[in-house]
Amino acid sequence: MKLSVFRPILCLAALLFFAAIPVSPAADEKAPVAAAGASDFNAKNTFRNICSFCHEDYGRKAGKGPQLMNNTNSDEYLFNRIKNGKAGRMAAFGGAFTDDQIRDMVKFIRSLRPDQEP
């Protein structure tokens, strides 16, 4: 039996059978969209939206990437690593964020403490 013969039936069946949960999505929660250069840049939000994929617990703990809290490298080193990345270990975010935004990220990393929420 070829599925294509029964395609209309299957499509209908799919709509009836597989759409397990009826949906009435609200349009009032339209997903906001931001450019990286937006003036409301927030280092903490950016960190947990992007950086937390590799640096766990806001970077207070290692994960796929190293722990960032108490990092002994200089601010300049951190700035350059965020901006330029390192092949195979970390993406370069220089094209996504401005220098000022990256400096804000470095400040956020420097503010991390083990006993208080960032």
């Binding site: 969209v33 931001a34 450019a35 947990r48 937390s52 994929f53 703990k61 996504a96």
Partner: peptide, 24 residues
């Protein structure tokens, strides 16, 4: 994990859109 509200970054290049901070 800590679920957080996020805003997708689309410009100039799309970025990860995780929505959480986590510890395995």
């Amino acid at each position: 994990l800590e679920i957080v509200k996020t805003t997708p970054v689309l410009e100039p290049m799309a970025q990860l859109n995780i929505g959480a901070n986590f510890t395995m």
